[in-house]
Simulated assay, not measured.
Amino acid sequence: MNKRLLLITLPISYFLIGVTSSIVAIARPFESIPLKCLFFRNGQLELTQNCSSSGASWAGGGFRVLQWDDGTTTRIAFGLQGRGERPCPQLSVNNICGEFGYRDAITLQPLSDAELQGKRQNNLPVVQCANVNNDSICWRSH
């Protein structure tokens, strides 16, 4: 009798474990990497510093923490957060909603969607940004 019960429950258990593990989002940490961080106020470059970036991503969201050389920490969250909530349509910077933006890697001018698409098609570097109100926090490789 115990063998029959075991033969019936094992396949069901494996099925449930498989279904459960596919539902649970697994966070993948980003290794800390050195970057160049830029701060634009009202479109004007105000600050450039070395920084490090770390964070994690999971199904549908994640976050990035920029640790600036002067000790300032900037937390950028994107997509689903917490218990599957989306507090902001695109992203938040220190809990203030914003949106993604991109700048030219040489001129640092904001890129339109068409310009961004052209740069990506040609594998040209761009600077990624988080725009909040009239300010932008941007980061790029050294």
Rank of each mutant, 00 (worst) to 15 (best):
S112A: 02
E99R: 13
E115D: 12
G61I: 04
P87W: 06
T72C: 04
L80Y: 12
E46S: 13
R83K: 13
F39M: 09
G55N: 02
G18Y: 05
A56F: 12
D70N: 15
T72Q: 15
F40S: 05
F40V: 02
S92E: 12
A77P: 07
E99I: 10
G18E: 06
F30G: 00
S53A: 13
I76Y: 02
R28T: 11
R75F: 14
A25Q: 07
P87E: 06
G18K: 01
F15K: 03
L66Q: 08
I96S: 07
Q81A: 01
A114M: 06
R86P: 07
Y102G: 03
F100H: 06
V93P: 00
G84T: 04
S57F: 12
G60D: 01
L16V: 09
D70E: 11
I33R: 11
F39I: 11
S22M: 12
F30M: 06
E115V: 07
L116S: 02
R64I: 15
Y14V: 15
L91R: 00
L111C: 05
I17E: 05
I96T: 13
E46C: 09
I17D: 03
G98H: 03
S54T: 13
E115Y: 05
P34D: 13
L38G: 15
P11Y: 08
S22F: 09
L66D: 09
P11T: 03
Q49Y: 07
P89S: 07
L91F: 00
L91E: 02
G55P: 03
L91K: 01
L111T: 14
Q90R: 01
G43R: 01
I96H: 10
Q117T: 14
G62T: 05
C97N: 00
T107M: 00
D70C: 06
I33G: 07
P29G: 07
P34N: 14
Q109T: 11
N94L: 05
Q81F: 02
I17N: 05
N95M: 09
R64V: 15
S54A: 10
L91G: 02
S54Q: 10
Q81Y: 04
S53G: 13
Q109F: 02
G79S: 04
Q117P: 05
L116N: 00
V65H: 06
L116V: 14
S57E: 15
Q81H: 02
S53L: 14
S22K: 12
Q49R: 14
D69V: 13
I33N: 12
S21H: 12
R75E: 14
I76G: 01
V24I: 10
R64C: 13
C37V: 11
F40I: 04
S54C: 00
S92V: 04
D70S: 09
P110D: 00
G79H: 04
L16R: 04
G62S: 04
F63M: 11
F15Y: 09
R28H: 09
T73W: 03
F63Y: 14
G101N: 02
Q49S: 09
F39Q: 13
V24M: 01
F78Y: 11
K36Y: 07
Y102C: 05
A105M: 01
A25R: 09
T72E: 15
F40W: 03
W58M: 03
N94Q: 04
A114Y: 04
L38P: 08
C51N: 06
C37W: 03
P29R: 03
E115Q: 14
